[in-house]
């Protein structure tokens, strides 16, 4: 489904700030893989998602999506099959548009954005039903601008919008990190509901407990390298203690924030 082959990426090449992040990173994901990525700050988690989505281009190596080499394809072209939610709730919604307008906009993904009415009035009840499932009363705020919503409300909306077109690949970058525990749980539950057999997802988190509770594959990154890649039963059996024990010899693999 997704293949990263021997990716090399250096930031600020040729300057004193030159920084080699990936020196031959490879990763394969099959349909139905729901990968949770953990790793300390700067280990290259966000960049991994950026490389896949096309917001960062690699120096060498290839990115293959659904058997198509997209290494040199622009972000908006790859986006057709990709749904994305960022840590910042602002990145996933348009603040000057209402919930109804935002959802109409997202629902049209995959089709042409032409001169037809932007507002999908006939989908209103469907949108409301989708919002109702969140259980945070967003369905009563259809005419509220996204900019006037709280971070958690906005992120829940962003997640709904990102998954509306049934993307083949869902990229989530600490999308529940900025939320309070209750909203974070709601957003993660909703996320879980998209982790189906015919979808693929990559979810970055700083929280080891969340990482163990979600997905069917665990990837641990450190300094741009894959330290650990476990799936299925092996992942199910994994505990925080075992993880910490495994890497007790390495420095800065874990930070305090990852444990709580």
């Amino acid at each position: 489904m997704l293949e990263l082959n021997n990716i090399k990426k250096t930031f600020n090449k040729g300057t004193p700030n030159e920084f080699i992040l990936y020196d031959g990173l490879s990763l394969k994901a099959e349909v139905g893989d729901h990968i949770v990525v953990v790793g300390s700050n700067g280990s290259g988690k966000s960049t991994l998602l950026n490389v896949i989505a096309g917001s960062v281009y690699v120096d060498s190596g290839s990115v293959v999506l659904n058997k198509i080499d997209v290494t040199n394809k622009k972000e908006y072209i790859r986006a057709q099959d990709i749904g994305r939610v960022f840590q910042d709730p602002k990145m996933g919604t348009c603040s000057t548009m209402t919930i109804m307008e935002n959802m109409s906009l997202a629902y049209n993904k995959g089709n042409k954005y032409g001169m037809e009415a932007g507002l999908l009035k006939h989908k209103r009840e469907m949108f409301k039903d989708m919002l109702r499932q969140l259980g945070i009363s967003l369905e009563e705020k259809m005419e509220t601008k996204a900019g006037a919503l709280s971070g958690g409300q906005r992120q829940a909306l962003a997640l709904l919008m990102a998954t509306m077109g049934n993307p083949k690949l869902l990229l989530l970058d600490e999308h529940a990190a900025a939320l309070d525990p209750k909203t974070s749980a709601i957003v993660l539950d909703l996320t879980e509901s998209f982790m189906t057999k015919d979808m693929t997802s990559i979810m970055v988190t700083h929280n080891l407990a969340d990482a163990l509770a979600h997905g069917n594959r665990l990837l641990m990154l450190h300094k741009g390298k894959v330290l650990l890649d476990i799936k299925g039963e092996e992942k199910k059996k994994m505990t925080i203690e075992a993880l910490i024990h495994m890497f007790s010899k390495e420095e800065d693999v874990f930070t305090d924030t990852m444990l709580f």
């Binding site: 986006a79 960022f86 603040s95």
Partner: peptide, 14 residues
């Protein structure tokens, strides 16, 4: 309207 507020969303929408 979206591109002025959040260009990333426009790209995400393909």
């Amino acid at each position: 309207r979206t591109v002025g507020d959040n260009p990333q969303l426009v790209a995400s929408l393909g």
